[in-house]
Design a protein around this nucleic acid. Structure first.
Lengths: 140, 140
DNA sequence: TAGATTATTGATACCAAGTATCAATTACAC
DNA sequence: GTGTAATTGATACTTGGTATCAATAATCTA
């Protein structure tokens, strides 16, 4: 679980400078629990330039502070990572809630896939969509 | 396996008009075996307007003549479907080759996911990336 | 086969997400 | 406090896609 201090420390460890713009962006993303777009952050920190918000969010993604979340329409969002290892998401299609999942592709399936196709498997995208408990009871 | 005639028939069945622009776009996509972007098609049929190419490819996607292919960077491409039912892809990261797959998420995994998260699962994205046999031997 | 009608087109303008450029600024090490 | 290299933000650009709308043309029907 990240807070402003721990992210600042991560930035310092990477030899990056702590600037007001970066602090503002980090604080803004840490304030959100679901997924969000760059524009969501931009509207939270209008004093920071657009390019800088993009740059900072890219930085945070590379540092695994943020991860990218794929929506069902194929568009990408961001989210504060709870875990830094490989994982997938279950995204609510009604609200912006996201669950991080333990489940991944069975290694046996990957072997089978490599065997039958002749491909050397390098990676995969796996994201699930559904309606969270709260949204289900809202419309019930 | 589609050809120009069968797609034209599908269009007629949908009550859509057969226009030179549509024929040109359909012929262009049928000519490609791997995945492609709208701009790839645009450059094949410069006489057709940009909006019309987008519209036609959207149409063809809705008719399951084309399907969308997700790349590892999160960008979307298109591809002529070999099968009209739900399926996933294995995409070569070196060339544009795509394999359509039988494998899907184990229903038991979906049940388990619904049970542990309380979500009603509605869908998922699953795409695999790797290097195809040809590309592997090229760089070996 | 000629209209009439309605879908379709394509030019254009727009939007969203993201990158490249570059002069001006500023964090930080000394 | 100063030098310097990293960073910023304005701007322009790119890519992928949608909205608008007058002009056109595919098809239906008489």
């Amino acid at each position: 679980m990240y807070n402003l201090q721990s992210v600042v420390q991560r930035l310092e460890e990477e030899g990056l400078r702590i600037t007001p713009s970066r602090l503002a962006v980090v604080a803004a993303v840490l304030d959100l629990s679901g997924h969000f777009s760059v524009d969501d952050i931009l509207s939270q920190v209008p004093e920071v330039g657009r390019a800088t918000v993009f740059r900072t969010m890219k930085l945070l993604s590379e540092m695994d502070v943020l991860c990218r979340v794929l929506l069902d329409d194929g568009s990408l969002r961001y989210r504060v990572s709870q875990r830094q290892d490989h994982h997938h998401h279950l995204v609510c299609v009604s609200c912006a809630s996201v669950q991080e999942l333990d489940a991944c592709i069975d290694p046996e399936v990957l072997n089978e896939l490599a065997r039958t196709t002749g491909y050397e498997i390098e990676g995969h995208w796996l994201e699930f969509f559904g309606r969270c408990t709260a949204c289900r009871s809202d419309s019930a």
